[in-house]
């Protein structure tokens, strides 16, 4: 595992030195500031509005970060031939994939925590209460971000970055759909759609912005189970990505 750890650090350093991360982070923070500046009906509603749309902004940010950080990693490594010396000798393919994934996952998590901090500051600036579940809610979005990251890696082994963006975004949208909504996409094949929906992820379990905005209490066990589900699904996507990568000839 030392090889994976070292390669993760290498990836982390590399991503921090790229402008993509800082650009996306700036966009998310500006969007949060924009949400906070929208005039609302009254004080109690404004807090709810900021929380609701702020968490939604962070969630979209996780998608942007996953795509911005990872969509180009493997294609670029292959194109610039930096991949060859790595997978020829010091790393196995699974070590390469995990190293790149963990490095990007840490950077993504750090960026999302910064956006969470930004949201807290905005609430405090407007003299609004900061709910205790805001940080756990962000942690759930981070887990969702890791799932999206693993999806981006999966697509990156057979799709170019411009194709990876719509594919991952489509999966992101579909994973938010309820069974009825999803079945409605192809009403003539309800059975197939039901089975597909079951295999596709239920990313809506990571969104607790409404309960938080409306002040519901959320039991800690829910966070644990949702995180476990997210990690298992990410592992599944990574294993699929690895199966594709292992079958690839590195010309």
């Amino acid at each position: 595992m030392k090889a994976v750890y070292t390669f993760s650090l290498m990836t982390l350093h590399m991503l921090f030195r790229r402008r993509t991360l800082w650009g996306i982070l700036l966009v998310i923070l500006l969007a949060l500031a924009g949400i906070a500046s929208v005039p609302s009906f009254d004080v109690s509603n404004q807090g709810r509005f900021i929380l609701d749309f702020g968490l939604f902004g962070i969630e979209l940010g996780s998608l942007l970060l996953a795509l911005g950080l990872a969509a180009n990693l493997y294609p670029r490594d292959k194109e610039t031939r930096t991949l060859m010396p790595l997978v020829a000798v010091p790393l196995s393919r699974w070590q390469y994939l995990l190293g790149r994934f963990f490095g990007a996952a840490i950077v993504q998590a750090a960026a999302l925590l910064v956006t969470c901090l930004g949201l807290m500051l905005i609430l405090l600036f407007h003299k609004l209460p900061v709910p205790g579940d805001l940080l756990p809610a962000t942690l759930l979005i981070i887990v969702e971000g890791w799932f999206l990251l693993s999806t981006v890696f999966f697509f990156s082994f057979f799709a170019s970055p411009p194709l990876n963006w719509p594919l991952t975004t489509m999966l992101f949208i579909v994973s938010q759909m309820s069974v009825s909504e999803f079945t409605g996409l192809l009403p003539s094949a309800p059975g197939l759609m039901r089975v597909l929906r079951m295999i596709l992820p239920h990313a809506d379990v990571f969104h607790i912005k409404d309960p938080i905005a409306h002040g519901f209490s959320i039991e800690p066990v829910y966070f644990l189970i949702a995180v476990f589900y997210g990690l298992c699904y990410s592992a599944f996507m990574l294993s699929l990505a690895l199966a594709v990568f292992r079958g690839r000839d590195l010309k």
């Binding site: 090889a3 070292t6 390669f7 290498m10 930096t82 790393l91």
Partner: peptide, 19 residues
């Protein structure tokens, strides 16, 4: 051969040795 431009040879040597 090509390597990531954001690193130095010594950084690469250390990373490959560690891997």
């Amino acid at each position: 051969p090509d390597y990531d431009n954001s690193f130095t040879p010594m950084e690469y040597m250390n990373m490959f040795a560690s891997m």
